[in-house]
Structures are given as structure tokens and as C-alpha cells.
């Protein structure tokens, strides 16, 4: 029982980070109907940037987040302008999938040229400190990561729901044609939306680098997890991504503590298959979209 509750605590704390990554991905899908397979690679790029800032200038990964998010925002906008905008609209969803996969490979190649393929980790002085609450271990880094993710998700929420730009985004998600008619510049919204998605990847990447060792190939592991979360929550729903992250993290943490860590890697796929069996559009997805 103790191990189980410990596992659930760990799962919830980890879920925050995944929710942050997945919210960016689901946002990109919502705006452009593009499944960004490069999201994992962008997270890892964010982690490498944080790593570099920490080792070269001693900047704490948490404090580096404003720098890395701006950098990845620019990368995201560039990817959208260079590779996604030229795609013809009639088979965009299929082609964009392949194009973002190619972007992921490109980023992986560039990262392995710059930082080699060996494992890196960001070793801050507080990396291993933890609190014990009622006999349960809470790693400090994970707690901070969780809080930071909540903070970033809150910012994202405010941006989407309280600003003019957010209203434009939500309008494009709900009905692109009407939004364009009402004066939303969909191309600009798409570019900035992709940049925002990449920026959340950067924020999550800093934290990911603190929690886990990573190398240029780590994005493969991330992307499958992220996709499961996003599909589980329903593509395009930010709230769904948060719930999806919680479900998947907690269930794999439970499996890890109750059965074996090896099978926890599989949990998300099983959960995904079950969801698709029962409700193919995910928990909070909308049906009228054609893809499902």
C-alpha cells in the first residue's frame, strides 16, 4: 500500500510535466490540424539549451526557462513558416505528419552533431534533495517541476481565455472559416500558435532535463507518450491533455510499483487501445472533425 501511494504521488507530480508538453501539442493540433511529431524533439532541444546554459553560465534550469521558451518560440515559428505553410491544404494533415517527423529527425541530427549522442543530465545542487511527508518521499525537483508546470499551464489558460489573441486562437480552433471572415488572420495565428506550442515544449524541456538523463534520441520515447496523452484527452483539447497526462502518468506509476517497471512502459499503449475501443475520439475530443 505504501509503495502504491508513493507511486501515485510520483505519477501526479510527473503528470504536470507531461501535461505541459502535451498542452502545446494539442494546441498546435487545435489551431492547424497538424499533429506535431517534432514536439518531443523540441522538448529535448529545450533540455539541451537548459543544459548548455547551466554548464556554461551556471544559469539555473528554472531561471533559464524564459530564455529557452523565447528561443524555441522562434524555432517553432520558423518551422511553421518554412515547412508547414507551403503544404497544400487538401492533404495537409497527412503530409504535415511526415513533415513534422522529418523536422524531428532534422532536430535529432543537429542535436547529435552539437552535443553528441551520449547521455546528458543537469546536476544541480538540489537535484537529490527531498522531503518526507507522512512517510512519503517527495523529491524537491519533482515538486518544483509540478508547480512550475501548473504555473505555465495557468499562463497558457489566461492567454487563451483572457486575451484578444487567445480569442483569435479559440475562434480558429472552433471554426477557421468563420474566424477568417471575422478578421482573424489565420496564417499569423498559425505561426504564433506553433511558436507557443514549441515554447511550452521548451519550458517542459528544462524540467525534463532536471528529472531525467537525456540524449538526442530521447524524443522517440517522449513522442509516443505525448501522442497517447493527446489522443486520450481528445486532440485539440488543452483540458483533455491535462487529464490525459494525469491518467497515463498515474496508471503507469501504479503499474510500475504494483507489477514491474518494465511493464509500466507499456501501460500508456494499453490505456490508449482501451480508449480507442470505447471512445475513438478520446475523452474530450469532438466528433465532427473527419479524422476520427
Amino acid at each position: 500500500m505504501h509503495a502504491l501511494i508513493q507511486g501515485i504521488i510520483l505519477g501526479i507530480l510527473t503528470a504536470g510535466v507531461y501535461a505541459l508538453m502535451a498542452s502545446g501539442q494539442t494546441l498546435i493540433f487545435g489551431i492547424m490540424k497538424v499533429v506535431n511529431l517534432a514536439q518531443g524533439a523540441m522538448v529535448i532541444l529545450g533540455a539541451y539549451l537548459a543544459f548548455q546554459l547551466f554548464t556554461s553560465f551556471g544559469i539555473d534550469p528554472f531561471l533559464a526557462i524564459p530564455i529557452t521558451t523565447v528561443a524555441l518560440f522562434v524555432v517553432g515559428v520558423l518551422v511553421q513558416l518554412l515547412f508547414l505553410r507551403p503544404l497544400r491544404s487538401d492533404d495537409r494533415s497527412e503530409l504535415s505528419l511526415l513533415v513534422t517527423f522529418a523536422v524531428a529527425l532534422l532536430l535529432e541530427g543537429i542535436m547529435s552533431v552539437i552535443w553528441s549522442t551520449s547521455d546528458r543530465s543537469i546536476n544541480t545542487h538540489y537535484a537529490n534533495s527531498s522531503w518526507t511527508v507522512f512517510g512519503y518521499q517527495i523529491t524537491l525537483v519533482r515538486l518544483w517541476a509540478f508547480l512550475l508546470s501548473l504555473f505555465a499551464l495557468g499562463l497558457l489558460y489566461l492567454l487563451l481565455n483572457r486575451t484578444r489573441f487567445g480569442r483569435a486562437i479559440r475562434a480558429s480552433v472552433q471554426n477557421p472559416e468563420s474566424a477568417t471572415l471575422l478578421g482573424v488572420q489565420s496564417e499569423r495565428v498559425s505561426a504564433i500558435g506553433f511558436g507557443l506550442g514549441a515554447a511550452t515544449a521548451a519550458a517542459a524541456g528544462s524540467v525534463y532535463g532536471l528529472l531525467y538523463p537525456f540524449n538526442s534520441g530521447s524524443h522517440y520515447d517522449l513522442i509516443s507518450r505525448l501522442l497517447s496523452i493527446v489522443i486520450l484527452g481528445g486532440l485539440g483539447s488543452v483540458g483533455g491533455a491535462v487529464i490525459g497526462a494525469l491518467v497515463i502518468s498515474v496508471s503507469s506509476a501504479i503499474v510500475a510499483s504494483a507489477i514491474s517497471p518494465i511493464w509500466s512502459e507499456m501501460t500508456f499503449f494499453i490505456v490508449l487501445l482501451l480508449v480507442l475501443l470505447v471512445r475513438p475520439r478520446g475523452l474530450f475530443g469532438t466528433a465532427a472533425r473527419g479524422a476520427i
Binding site: 490540424k33 499533429v35 511529431l37 494533415s93 497527412e94 505528419l97 522517440y220 520515447d221 513522442i223 509516443s224 501522442l227 497517447s228 489522443i231 486532440l235 512502459e265 507499456m266 500508456f268 499503449f269 490508449l272 480507442l276 475501443l277 475513438p280 473527419g290 479524422a291 476520427i292
Partner: peptide, 17 residues
């Protein structure tokens, strides 16, 4: 049960699994 892009996602997940 899913179509085009979501099908691609499910199968790529299968690959990593």
C-alpha cells in the same frame, strides 16, 4: 477505428511500444 492522421499516431505508438 481511427482515420488518417490519428491512425498514423496510433501506429507510430505501436512502433515505439
Amino acid at each position: 477505428r481511427t482515420r488518417s492522421d490519428v491512425f498514423a499516431i496510433v501506429t507510430i505508438t505501436l512502433l515505439f511500444v
